[in-house]
Computed example of a mutant assay.
Amino acid sequence: MRSRCLVVSFASPHRRLPSFTCAMLSLALLAAQGPHALAEGAFALTSASFHAGGTVDAAQVFDQDDCKGGNHSPQLTWHDAPTGTRSFAVTLFDPDAPGRGWWHWAVAGIPASVDRLPENASSSGYLKKLGAVEARNDFDIDGYGGPCPPPGKPHRYVITVYALSTADLRLGQGRPALMFDHEIGTATLGSARMVVNYGR
């Protein structure tokens, strides 16, 4: 059965419109409902290694001093990045560490065509193959350094993927994570994050 729509006019209160005109009118009405009517999904982050609000597994825990973990960077997947994204960056930060917090990981220069990282992308060489660069974390190591808080109350660990408006932040391998954070902030179009916990 052919679809029909009606419009109100002074000349003919119930004049039928051709199907093409009807379709165009329907699209116009949909657009008039506001930006959310035709909006894409929200930029989001998921992980096979981390679960929002969950506890960090031993595979992602730091592996030096009195912390005995695998020190593997987590698997990450993201989707629905903002329009205009030219590259991605990733950070892992502990806001509960004394002082200004603790940087565990910062990566920039992940190509816009990439929407996931495998587990252990940091030390396996995967990020280098992509052309990405990693900061020097607060353990004084280039790349990923997993959670290793002092004994006591568990700390929160915030993992964030940033969609950036540039493919080149002009950051070099091994620059301080705080510098990465600053430069990432100058080019961020949107971000997706997850918070996990770990204590000893």
Rank of each mutant, 00 (worst) to 15 (best):
R2V: 00
R4M: 10
C5V: 09
C5M: 11
A11L: 15
A11R: 14
A11N: 14
A11G: 10
P13E: 13
R15T: 11
R15N: 05
C22G: 09
L25N: 08
A28R: 13
G34T: 10
A37P: 07
A37Q: 12
A37H: 12
E40D: 10
T46Y: 02
A48C: 01
S49W: 01
G53W: 04
G54V: 02
V56L: 04
V56Q: 10
A58L: 14
A58D: 12
A58F: 02
V61W: 03
F62Q: 11
D63C: 11
Q64K: 06
Q64C: 06
D66A: 10
K68P: 00
G70F: 07
S73G: 15
S73I: 15
A81N: 04
A81Q: 12
P82H: 09
P82K: 11
T85K: 08
A89G: 15
L92G: 03
D94T: 14
D94F: 13
P98I: 01
G101W: 13
W105K: 04
W105E: 11
V107Y: 05
I110A: 04
I110W: 08
A112D: 06
V114G: 01
L117D: 03
E119M: 14
E119N: 05
S123P: 00
G125M: 03
Y126F: 15
L127A: 07
K129T: 12
N137F: 04
D138R: 08
D140G: 08
I141H: 09
Y144P: 03
G145D: 02
G145I: 06
P147I: 06
P147M: 07
C148S: 05
K153I: 09
R156T: 02
Y157E: 01
I159K: 02
I159R: 02
A167P: 07
D168S: 14
L169M: 05
R170E: 03
G174I: 06
R175Q: 15
P176N: 04
L178D: 10
I184E: 09
M194N: 07
N197R: 14
G199Y: 03
